[in-house]
């Protein structure tokens, strides 16, 4: 078992390496990185100074390995605009993003899984159709459209919830809940659609199995058949999609934080775009990719521990 985990952990190294390569060469493929970093108004001396200070005069392979060594020391470089290390900026902004992601995942799973199971149980009926319509809508309505729709109705018209902002739950929990509700609903929409669709599909498949018939034949109540026998066996694809959906979630976070003015990592990216603060964009891509890879690695390892059918 330990060897198995070690193999899986090791297998993420090449993926991280490729991510680093892509991020490294992206800035270089599109022309002179020093000129990009300096901006349109910079003089040629300024560009030259940046080139020397970033070590861009050295051979490319030397630059790349130097950069990798820097990354291994958890050094993501320095923001051009604020002069602060990118890791410091990430640490400052991570809480709102982590909270939003957490509330979204919890809420989505709590809503989507029963929804998918119900749709599978009544497959072909009106509940099923309703769930499927919801899923197609979830994939079609842009996050910001959903966000402004909710703000317009629940914050401006009904005045039930605040329009935007963020308060840490460690400071004022009640305020945190009232402010995080609309962003969570906004971001959950597409995530619920994704999870409900997979739950429905995998439960439908499992419901045809012999052990479900046996469970029903021995008089097990239907709720237990669905949630104990069927859902448990359908769990692997559902958990996989929750993990893969994190990529979708990260994209959504960037937009949702902009709509609701939440000072998280998403805002950090958007501000970095307008200021052309490339080290921040680079650092955040690496950071999000790492989160995605580690999360999916954990999910992968948990399967092998939980599901005896999976052996690599």
């Amino acid at each position: 078992m330990l060897r198995l985990i070690a193999t899986r952990v090791l297998s993420t190294i090449p993926v991280m390496g490729v991510v680093a390569l892509i991020v490294f060469f992206m800035l270089r493929l599109s022309g002179d990185p020093a000129a990009i970093l300096a901006g349109d108004t910079a003089s040629s001396e300024q560009v030259e100074r940046i080139r020397v200070s970033l070590g861009l005069t050295r051979p490319v392979y030397e630059q790349f390995f130097g950069w990798i060594v820097q990354l291994l020391r958890f050094d993501l470089g320095t923001s051009l605009f604020t002069g602060l290390p990118v890791t410091t900026l990430i640490a400052q902004r991570i809480e709102p993003t982590a909270m939003l992601a957490l509330t979204t995942i919890v809420f989505s799973v709590l809503v989507a899984v029963p929804m998918g199971v119900l749709a599978a149980w009544k497959s072909g009926g009106w509940i099923d159709r309703l769930v499927m319509v919801f899923c197609v809508l979830g994939f079609s309505v842009p996050v910001f459209v959903m966000g402004y729709f909710l703000i317009f109705n629940f914050a401006i018209n009904l005045r039930w919830l605040p329009v935007q902002g963020y308060t840490s739950p460690f400071v004022d929990f009640g305020r945190f809940i009232s402010q995080i509700t609309l962003p969570t609903l906004t971001l959950s929409f597409i995530y619920i659609a994704l999870i409900a669709r997979i739950t429905r599909a995998s439960v439908i498949e499992v419901l045809g199995e012999d052990y479900i018939r046996t469970a029903r034949a021995k008089g097990q109540i239907e709720l237990k058949v669905l949630f104990r026998h069927a859902l448990k066996n359908a769990a692997v694809p559902i958990v996989t999609v929750i993990g893969l959906g994190v990529a979708l979630l990260i994209g959504g976070v960037v937009v949702t934080e902009s709509v609701y003015n939440i000072p998280g990592l998403g805002r950090l990216v958007v501000d970095a775009i307008t200021r052309r603060d490339y080290p921040i964009i680079q650092g955040l891509i690496l950071f999000f990719a790492l989160v995605y890879i580690v999360l999916n690695l954990i999910i992968d390892i948990v399967y092998t521990l939980v599901d005896p059918r999976i052996r690599y």
């Binding site: 090449p14 993926v15 991280m16 390496g17 490729v18 991510v19 390569l21 892509i22 991020v23 992206m26 800035l27 599109s30 022309g31 990009i36 990529a247 979708l248 990260i250 994209g251 960037v254 937009v255 990216v269 775009i273 052309r276 490339y278 964009i281 680079q282 955040l284 891509i285 999000f288 990719a289 995605y292 890879i293």
Partner: peptide
């Protein structure tokens, strides 16, 4: 496939943002 795995690990919107902002 390793290159594709690496590309898939980067959230699509972020990758697109980065590509547009450099080009």
């Amino acid at each position: 496939m390793r290159i594709m795995d690496g590309l898939m690990a980067i959230p699509g919107i972020l990758l697109a943002i980065a590509l547009v902002s450099v080009s």
